[in-house]
Amino acid sequence: MTDVVTNKRIEAGAADRQPLLEAKGISKAFGHVQALDNVDFELYPAEVVALIGDNGAGKSTLVKILSGIYRKDSGQIYFEGQPVELRGPKDAERLAGISTVYQDLALVDVRDVGSNIFLNMESTRWGIFINFRRLYADARRVIDLLKIDMPSVRVNVGELSGGQRQGVAISRALARGRRIFIMDEPTAALGVEQQHKVNELIANLKREGKTVLVISHNLEHVFTVADRLIVLRRGKRVGTRLKSQTTKEEIVGLITAAVKGDVPD
């Protein structure tokens, strides 16, 4: 039941590319609550997509299915055209290259930047001793790739600002070869300046050919970073808009049902 309008708009933006990740007919219910109702979803290489909607619209349910935390009731997920079954977060990372950057970032504050980025994948000499010189050089390379302000990769993560911490969490996923970065409310706890840093970070990820999915309440932020906006309302995908072809008023309308969605409610 993909609707014509939505498809047209996607094609307008994504030309003839094949989606990197595609989900078809995803449904998920919790008891009597239908959290997701037959939702289609697609991510293309090197784009920034914002997933928006009111509380309870199904954003986090969809994201948790994509990152392997929840199992879907029905539907199918494809990675590069191949069907994949995501039974857990590890599947999402290995089979679909999806990395989720959570609000708490899950960094080891007592270790330095380099050690955090390469945690549990440190290159060693003779299989035992960590090659620290190489580790810090590699860490510097990843940090520079994303143009993160970082005086040294030998600083403890506990001493960094919010934006820098986001950068370390993203670098950790990037170093693991991930291609899709799901960011849950990345600017929620940050000041204005640090928000700018995160925006730059997202732009740099896109420039490196990565795909970013941002879940956000902050429309201002969404309109700054996203190429494409997907609106969920009560478990349904009610609209997909290219940023260049929509307005904040229309998006707010889609979220609140003041504007009629592309699918019937």
């Binding site: 977060p89 899950a106 960094l107 080891v108 504050d109 945690l119 549990n120 994948m121 950790r172």
Partner: peptide, 8 residues
């Protein structure tokens, strides 16, 4: 940070 350890 147990979660960090689990994530990697």
């Amino acid at each position: 940070n147990r979660r960090a350890a689990e994530i990697v």
